[in-house]
Design a protein around this nucleic acid. Structure first.
Length: 486
RNA sequence: GAUCCCAUCGUCUAGCCUGGUCUAGGACACCGGGUUUUCAUCCCGGCAACACGGGUUCAAAUCCCGUUGGGAUCACCA
């Protein structure tokens, strides 16, 4: 067989969805592991839902994930153009070919008429099939209809035979002839429908392995029939089980991020997302779970794609990210952290590499970059720009007879006399602990709450070193003053 | 509603094709314990599934049938 050629053909209507990302990934893997070609085509034939900015968004997120195409939009190739909106004349030519061969015909119903027919069928508990007219309307009928202001579409005349799809994942699936009907291939506006454009492009671009979501499986008969009518070769098909939410419903935005970009913005590493979505509906067949892109390429096999829908478990994704971050080298983390900061509003200066590296080090054990921001962001705002969490204040400072405040006042005196090196701070605090025979927590927590407003921050020495003496004292004073007011 | 597809721990899944090695394995989550100046991390231990009912067979998670449950499709959206 020829070298394998796969494609990802998104419709630009918004951000890249994790489901789309998985389809892209599997196509990429399929091509790469066999030394084949992976191409990217934009299917922008839906003018109503079209969003031009989505093209760039999809491309950007694909690249962020590390999925590179060998041919297609932006990089070109021998089979362009790679946007369907630029291939309209091609589709027209193929539609006409069908029309001339009597394999397609014109139809003139309005949406309302079609709707009424469907309603009627429903009322009679009958399945609706478009009633093919006899004789078939010809071009002059179409001209006449157009002159009368009626919509004109082109429908494919199905041959009326059962169609069996040979799917690499689901096996042979047969769609009976009486389940099919004469579907539309050219819309009122003369643009092609998905089925026509997709089939023509795949054939013309040499795509010989079609891997896409399972929602297309029960429609693939249209593609088989269209290909047959054109004399195109059959590609291999592999339909992927769907990705659902934890309730088993279609993955939707309401229960969290579903877009690749959202995970990027939330502080996840791209290779983690790739690893995780690769395991949705596929596995290497052994106990390995952590796989790099090259390991995925090496071990990928369509035969190991499962048939059951998968649920998208965000907690497992988080665990993957936590582990990956712990193993990643600093420069890689630095790049990821900067990307994260550039996408989010943050007081942390994103251009100070040594500071960023320092933050990465003192936050060891973080789960996503967002953890660093929530923990350290407050250290970079002005001293009066953060709120004191009432619960933290109560628990750490006000509890008892204001023991925490007393401790803080004492510490303020000592701290202001400290020469502010990590060693000095450490012995200062340890001395206080020893002197009063109390635990570290009793000393560190009041300071932490005073300088950050919360009970959560990096280790106390790290926190104080980043803040510096002046800001520390200023914040403690603000905290003490707040007590007086209360 | 019609058609098609699917079904192992709460979740991702291994095992199923080529029945016995499965008192069903791994990971996440959860629970319990430990480490830790907070959070997070980390360490140890534990809980937990073959949807149900019939067959076939010496033997079934594995093969067959049915039931139930879930999903997809039935657009001038892709």
């Amino acid at each position: 067989m020829d070298t394998i050629k796969t494609r990802f053909a998104p419709s630009p209507t918004g951000w890249l969805h994790v489901g789309g990302a998985r389809t892209a990934l599997f196509n990429y893997l399929l091509a790469k592991q066999a030394g084949g070609v992976f191409l990217l085509r934009i299917e922008d034939t839906d003018r109503a839902r079209h969003d031009e900015s989505a093209v760039a968004k999809i491309i950007e997120d694909l690249r962020w994930l590390g999925i590179e195409w060998d041919e297609g939009v932006e990089i070109g190739g021998d089979n362009g153009p790679y946007r369907q909106s630029e291939r309209l004349d091609i589709y027209r030519k193929y539609t006409n070919q069908l029309l001339e061969a009597g394999r397609a015909y014109f139809a003139f119903e309005t949406a309302e008429e079609l709707d009424a027919m469907r309603q009627a069928a429903r009322a009679e508990k009958r399945n609706f099939r478009y009633p093919r007219p006899d004789p078939l309307p010809r071009r002059n009928d179409a001209d006449k209809a157009r002159a009368e202001g009626r919509p004109v579409v082109v429908r494919f005349k199905i041959p009326g035979r059962d169609v069996t799809i040979h799917d690499e994942v689901f096996g042979d699936v047969t769609v009976a002839a009486d389940e099919q009907d004469d579907f539309i291939i050219a819309k009122t506006d003369d643009w092609p429908t998905y089925h026509l454009a997709n089939v023509v492009d795949d054939a013309l671009m040499g795509v010989n392995f079609v891997c896409r979501g399972q929602e297309f499986l029960s429609q693939t008969w249209r593609h088989v029939l269209l290909r047959e009518a054109f004399g195109f070769d059959e590609p291999k098909y592999a339909h992927l089980p769907l990705i659902m939410d934890m309730q088993g419903r279609k993955l939707s935005k309401r229960d969290g991020a579903v877009e690749v970009h959202a995970f990027r913005k939330a502080g996840y590493l791209p290779e983690v997302l790739v690893n995780f979505i690769a395991l949705l509906g596929w596995n290497p067949g052994d106990d390995r779970e952590r796989l790099t892109m090259s390991e995925l390429i090496e071990s990928f096999s369509p035969g190991r794609i499962g048939k059951a829908n998968a649920k998208f478990d965000r907690r497992k994704l988080l665990a993957f990210n936590t582990d990956a971050v712990a193993d990643a080298d600093e420069n890689h983390l630095l790049a990821g952290f900067k990307d994260y900061l550039s996408l989010n509003e943050t007081p942390i200066p994103g251009d100070d590499d040594s500071l960023l590296l320092h933050l990465l080090r003192i936050n060891k054990g973080f789960r996503t970059f967002a953890d660093i921001l929530t923990k350290c962001g407050v250290l970079f705002v002005t001293d009066d720009a953060f709120e004191y969490d009432p619960k933290a204040v109560k628990k750490v400072l006000a509890k008892g007879d204001g023991d925490g405040y007393a401790m803080l006042a004492d510490l303020r005196t000592k701290l202001s006399a400290c020469d502010w090196t990590e060693d000095a701070l450490q012995s200062l605090i340890e001395d206080v602990c020893a002197e009063k025979s109390i635990g570290m927590g009793k000393v560190a927590q009041p300071i932490r709450v005073a300088v950050t407003g919360s009970t959560v921050s990096p280790a106390i020495y790290d926190t104080l070193m980043i803040l510096g003496k002046e800001k520390t004292i200023a914040r403690i004073d603000r905290c003490l003053a707040m007590r007086e007011k209360a």
